[in-house]
Write a protein that binds this DNA or RNA. Structure first.
Lengths: 182, 182
DNA sequence: AGCATACTTGAACGATTGGTACAGAGCAAG
DNA sequence: CTTGCTCTGTACCAATCGTTCAAGTATGCT
């Protein structure tokens, strides 16, 4: 089996998720990925910073493809929103899995990846607001709900992880989901 | 001027807030506090772990005194909730200042301070639910709103920091505030 | 004053950090 | 087999990590 750069990204993502940017030392990363330092620096000559940047790009691409694009362009806006909720629950494993972008945003790691962090949430909010408008909400209300929902998802992750309560995550998500309905 | 242990805790808190537990190196901490390594280990013989634990305890005590206790026992429940919103906006500086407990919850630092992290959010949720019940919400609805609100606050911090948008924080808070009304 | 205790300093410790260098393994093409 | 290229493990670097500690200064009590 050949290990390509793309195959390493999810493993890198888990390492950063679990330990944060500073906490994910190269020895942690080599353990997580099963790759030696040589291989890692072959794929990512820029070192840790390039690894994290690549992971963020990979995450953004996934969300763009699976969630944002459907929210913006799918004919059935309600179906796109429903699919978003399914994807969110699955992706974050009911709050057992952290949002890497959100975690980066809370420490000074944000400054290193400011534009990627900002873009991720900007795209999400705008795409959701777009779908909500097509659902019949007026523009102002759509924006307000979108911000509320995207923030609420991040909060649900934080709280569920803090309290180790996956049920809590699902309850908060259900509340947000109700808020977005027309 | 004499520097007491209690005076150091807020400075330590800012260091951990800004850099996270791993990122707050001893040299960062000495710079932030203006105390030498020796002094720090004099006040906190347990080293960094004890510093962080003391900060968490300090934070929990502040919230207990300023927010949780009023929510539980103040005669006017609505006034206690209003005071909570004022305190939240001021304490988190409209989302420019991170919630240390929330930040810890997102990395593996949570495991080190699991009980403090869990207790903080448990107390907050329970105290708020108690006030909401006295406001006239039935028990089930009070619990649901409380979870939604406490999560929402954390999400507002994450999003506001990610997007460097203090206005976003205030808008999300306003939405949560409306949700808690009777 | 003397003495004990509280605090501070800064150098030094071993361990680990992120990063580099490089020789060799593996493989495909000629 | 030779050549060339991608990939990988190991050894190594300077820098920094958290922690310790002997020696110092300040403070307060008798």
């Amino acid at each position: 089996m050949v290990m390509e750069r793309a195959d390493v990204l999810p493993l890198l993502g888990e390492a950063f998720r679990e330990h944060g940017y500073e906490g994910a030392s190269l020895s942690v990363i080599t353990k997580q990925t099963g790759l030696g330092r040589g291989s890692l620096y072959h794929f990512f000559p820029g070192g840790k910073a390039e690894m994290a940047a690549a992971v963020l790009e990979d995450i953004d691409a996934w969300f763009e493809r699976e969630i944002f694009a459907p929210l913006r362009s799918k004919a059935d806006a309600q179906a796109a929103i429903d699919a978003m909720w399914e994807a969110v629950s699955a992706y974050f494993r009911s709050g057992q899995r952290v949002c890497l972008v959100g975690a980066f945003a809370l420490s000074d790691t944000r400054d290193r990846f400011a534009s990627a962090v900002n873009a991720y949430f900007a795209h999400w909010t705008e795409a959701l607001a777009h779908a909500l408008r097509r659902l019949g909400h007026d523009a102002e209300r759509a924006n307000a709900i979108a911000e509320q929902v995207v923030a609420g998802i991040q909060g649900a992750i934080t709280l569920a992880r803090a309290r180790r309560d996956a049920g809590l995550f699902e309850r908060v998500i259900a509340g947000l989901r109700a808020m977005a309905e027309k």
